[in-house]
Design a protein around this nucleic acid. Sequence first.
DNA 1: CTTTTACCCTATAGATTTAATAGATTAATA
DNA 2: TATTAATCTATTAAATCTATAGGGTAAAAG
Lengths: 136, 136
Amino acid sequence: MLSKKTKYGLKALTYLASQKGNTPVQISEIAQHENISQKFLESILLSLRKSGFLGSKKGKGGGYYLIKKPEEVLMTDVMRVLEGPIAMVPCVSLNFYEKCDDCPDEDACSVHTLMLKVRDSTLEVYRNNTLADLVK
Amino acid sequence: MLSKKTKYGLKALTYLASQKGNTPVQISEIAQHENISQKFLESILLSLRKSGFLGSKKGKGGGYYLIKKPEEVLMTDVMRVLEGPIAMVPCVSLNFYEKCDDCPDEDACSVHTLMLKVRDSTLEVYRNNTLADLVK
DNA sequence: CTTTTACCCTATAGATTTAATAGATTAATA
DNA sequence: TATTAATCTATTAAATCTATAGGGTAAAAG
């Protein structure tokens, strides 16, 4: 299941990408427009800023804005920040690899093999989609 | 993340499929061989039986056995029973569809569109893999 | 210096997952 | 029929994760 964090994060990014200029948009405006709990959205936007997707400006006229062009924002990167590993099992994860403690031989593990295929196909989708594709 | 239930279930099915005959295999044997908590596995095998993948035999010489040939057991079906919906969001699920309460228009939702693509690609993997493929 | 807005920290109710425990039931066999 | 080896059933505990609320801080602008 996709977490609400990811869902809200994607919606917020899309909303920002659909904006005309790059002028900051307030949290409250995004929250209202996308039906999101403002407090929750606050923490999501913060993590998107810390990971380099968004910039922010405090005070009057402040808010969040995209740092890169939507075409340059890959879904692989967004998803890893919001949702975490793309793989369904740590032992097939590229960026979050971890050995299974119960499984002696990865290559002989049926789960490993299957989940490798799933990861590859999911990864291909994310690699071929940018934030610009979400706006359409 | 794949739940341990699913992981263990897949391993157990694979173990059964790798057996020579169709003679019942005891829970304890599977648990030991695959490093799984026996009691937990018990409940997993039970649900696999109730959903028509396994048969069981009580008493001495009893255990669990596959009902169909491994080649006939599709991963789509197995995964839906063990893990639940294949889609990451209910609004793109074929078998567990549910409308999002926050989203007024599905077709205009960026999350919906992206997750539809992910679902399709994942589904294709599961459709093209049977239990027989896991044994190899 | 006042207003506005992002930033940061903490707490928590609820759900889900992953078991552990204890016993009941069934069936084969000696 | 007594014994034994299994599956079945129910309860519940522990741990983790999710989604959110509350309250206070810091900085930018006018």
